[in-house]
Amino acid sequence: MNIVLQVWRQDSPESRGGFKTYQVKDISEEMSFLEMLDILNERLINQGEEPIAFDHDCREGICGTCGVMINGQAHGPQQGTATCQLHMRKFQDGETVVVEPWRATGFPLIRDLVVDRSAFDRIVEGGGYISVDTGSAPDANLIPIPKLVADTAFDAAACIGCGACVAACPNGAANLFTAAKISHLNLLPQGQSERWSRTENMVEIMEEFFGSCTNHGECEKACPKQISIDFIALMNADYVKAKFKNRRLVSQNG
């Protein structure tokens, strides 16, 4: 099949970028979207043009490295699918496909389709962990966790940190990512000790980089792991509780 590719090219964060059109001929429907980009890059190198920079790694939809806007949708038209798992059979022969990087102030552009997502690391640093030094853990079966709770925690923990939620959100908000991280730990008994401080810190760090949630639900549809926005509701509830809850227990001392 043949497609017409309009790709965002930008040499550096400072330079002006723009769309460039490429005719990509004779590609197989069995190819993944990134393999199609590989082929285009191979052809560009042969023509003496610098290949398109794009982030990618595992190509199994789990590492979260890849991710571009394809025809105005984060990770492209197939729901529940990361860019690397999207295949060309989802496109029409002769179709024009527009490829753009994630756009968000929290994700500054590095080059072409590559953006810097380290703001996510800052959010996790704020409390996306359970403080347990190596060696201090009790036996794993000491605390039974209802299957449903463990499963729901997993649903949240499935987040691959690709940033599609931010890219898709009309407000550039990272609430789904943060909610997934927070809910994973807040749902589990092990995560209770730090529940309120975690929620407070992570939400506030998130808001330094990203926009606010106005409940469009666009993130949930873009998420390659189809993480539910119900987790955002859980996070909101926990944040409010964290702010109102009496955590100090005593306030007067002699």
Partner: peptide
Amino acid sequence: DQATAQGVPF
């Protein structure tokens, strides 16, 4: 034990 305590949802 360590992983479970960290919140790994086995």
